[in-house]
Design a protein around this nucleic acid. Structure first.
Length: 470
RNA sequence: UGGGGUGUAGCUCAAUUGGCAGAGCGCGCGGCUGUUAACCGCGAGGUUGCAGGUUCGAUUCCUGCCGCCCCAGCCA
């Protein structure tokens, strides 16, 4: 495998993200001719550098205000950038200057002024105001100040917290990762398949959210789309799901949400080794994509990008049985057969410069649908992908049991309701096939790439055990 | 669900041995033409999470409850 083979080659997005691809409806700048128009052109902040010396209009929100007698500074955000506008009494005259009081933090405004390159400005450019209009007032007392706040307060004001530069940067990285996932699979001829969110009882019976469902009894919010993905893989070859999943478990940790987004590829005629290659290719591409396209956001987040620059195939592969040996020499008291604890995972990944695979866990520690390992029947063909820096498991994957009788035996042995799995067993009755897949936790992936301490900031409106609003 | 921590002004936090409830930010008024979480002066702002107990006196000590944070388990 060549170092670059994980890179998709078809849609190669532009290196510089387009900023003004959508023309903003404006009665005054419809033709987009910046020079001939009587009224100033409407400009987005990242494009100000193309308008130095000319008068422009921009729309945004006031993030910060300072005044000094006869001069005022307004820091304005338009969603793509931030710029400081200067309002001087001497420039605008008393009539406009006297309307300064209308300006408040988070008021939405339409500003008209001259773009000026200024070495004192953090972005290199400023706007010397000629006039302004407050298009949406904001009362005094905006809750979020430019200072430290506690987590609980910020989560209570999440709808406003999103406006802060750091949170906006995280959401841009999340969006970049989502788009990169689609691009990665698109060029590999995967078909995206949407699986149901409302399901009958299937899979685990605990940790499920339930709701009344007409005359059908109880419906459950899906914990996984995998079983449906397997059905789709027999129709389409290579598929992936991309959607929300739900766990009612009472987990209160930095790595858990009750509602999170999961990407679950399923590939026909792929074995466990193929599966791990796909995983390392995907993760490497996601990291590379964010490094190349969202460097500014990583800077905003103060992410140590040197921790990401080595993420490329191949990732280390450690068999579970070997991992137990390694862990015992490093002081762990783990016994063969037990699942790895968080401390064990940290020990294994210690010092790694890229994610690490731990594969072929004991059968008892894993789900019923995983295929028995022919080389060691105590274990199944599966893998976890553990991210470095304490982020832990961001992927869980396996080769699926494709033998009808063995699968039925596992379902019976685990005491699962066989009738509920009739359609799943059908996949083994009619043309069974070697196949493998995995689940990538989007929020954990975003947290890892952004270097965040908690997944609650990786999703716009986190759903936690104790948080259903906003 | 266990273990640890924490709760004081709108926000972030102080309060000595148990002895008058404090600061910064924000807010109000005034000043200032280059501020970067601006600065200077004045001012308003409190049921110290809730309930009980000890005490002349509790933010402080004790008991119970509640909220939140961190860790573990479950998992992505």
């Amino acid at each position: 495998m060549t170092p670059s083979s994980y890179r998709p080659t078809l849609p190669r997005p532009p290196k510089t993200p387009p900023t003004s691809v959508m023309p903003i409806a404006s009665p005054s700048s419809g033709d987009g001719s910046a020079t001939s128009s009587q009224t100033p052109p409407l400009v987005r902040i990242p494009d100000l550098n193309a308008h130095v010396g000319s008068v422009v209009t921009l729309r945004g929100w006031i993030t910060h205000l300072r005044s000094s007698g006869k001069i005022a500074f307004l820091v304005v955000r338009d969603g793509l950038g931030t710029v400081q506008a200067v309002l001087a009494k001497a420039d605008v005259g008393p009539a406009i200057w006297d309307r300064y009081g209308e300006l408040t933090q988070e008021a939405s405004v339409e500003l008209t002024g001259t773009v000026r390159a200024d070495p004192r400005a953090p972005g290199g450019f400023e706007l010397t105001l000629r006039d302004f209009v407050v298009t949406g007032g904001s009362p005094i007392g905006y809750p979020i100040q430019p200072k430290e706040h506690g987590v609980d307060f910020l989560m209570d004001h999440r709808h406003l917290w999103l406006r802060s530069p750091r949170q906006a940067a995280i959401l841009r990285v999340r969006s970049e990762i989502e788009q990169a996932i689609h691009d990665f699979f698109y060029v590999r001829n995967f078909t995206r398949v949407d699986t149901p969110i409302l399901t009958a009882a299937i899979g685990e019976r605990s940790g499920l959210f339930s709701t009344e469902y007409f005359d059908e009894g109880t419906a459950y919010l899906a914990q996984t789309g995998q079983l449906y993905g397997e059905a789709a893989a027999a129709a389409l070859g290579s598929i992936y799901t991309f959607g929300p999943t739900f766990r009612a478990e009472k987990s209160k940790t930095r790595r858990h949400l009750t509602e999170f987004w999961m990407i679950e590829p399923e590939v026909a005629f792929a074995d466990s080794a193929d599966n791990m290659r796909l995983q390392e290719d995907l993760l490497s591409y996601l990291v590379e994509r964010v490094l190349s396209r969202r460097r500014r956001e990583l800077d905003e987040l103060e992410r140590d990008v040197s921790k990401l620059e080595h993420v490329a195939p191949p990732f280390p592969r450690i068999a579970y049985t070997d991992a137990v040996e390694i862990l015992r020499t490093r002081g762990s008291s783990i016994e063969w057969g037990a699942d790895l604890g968080a401390e064990d995972e940290a020990l294994l990944v210690e010092g790694a410069d890229r994610p690490v695979f731990v594969c072929n866990y004991p059968k008892e520690a894993k789900a019923f649908y995983m295929k028995e390992n022919p080389a060691d029947p105590r274990t199944v063909l599966c893998n976890d992908c553990l991210a470095p820096e304490g982020y832990g498991e961001i992927i869980g994957g396996s080769q699926r049991e494709d033998d009808y009788d063995r699968l039925l035996a596992r379902i019976l042995a685990e005491g699962l309701p066989v009738d509920a799995y009739g359609w799943y067993l059908d996949l083994r009755r009619y043309g069974t096939f070697v196949h493998s897949g995995f689940g990538l936790g989007l929020e954990r992936c975003v947290a890892y790439i952004c270097g965040l301490p908690h997944v609650r900031e990786t999703i716009p409106f986190a759903r936690l055990m104790n948080r259903l609003r906003p």
